[in-house]
Amino acid sequence: MRVDGGLAAFPGLRKPVTVDVATLPVARRERLQRAVAAADFFARSARPARPAPDARAYTIEIDDGTRSHTLALAEPIADPALQALVDAIRACSATDVG
């Protein structure tokens, strides 16, 4: 997941966050997998994020071994399922940054 924009540009936060599901603790892995399923991630169509001042944009790419899909989101994320997915990735990346 790549996070872009926000009220300030922090060079240290620009690099993409990569999460290897195989290395995650069970609880986090299951939370992430549930979030991906609940968001119906692979069926969502990618669309360019419209830039709103200071809002952040997220580019999420997920590869499950058989398929790969990319989704662009812009804040505010109105869909709770998509917000839960972003939160789940963030939670994983807190300790599993690749």
Binding site: L7, A52, P53, R56, E75, P76
Partner: peptide, 17 residues
């Protein structure tokens, strides 16, 4: 109180967050 531990503020076209 937008989001959980949310590190940002923005203008969405009609309001501040």
């Amino acid at each position: 109180h937008y989001g959980k531990q949310y590190d940002n503020a923005f203008w969405n076209g009609t309001q501040m967050v």
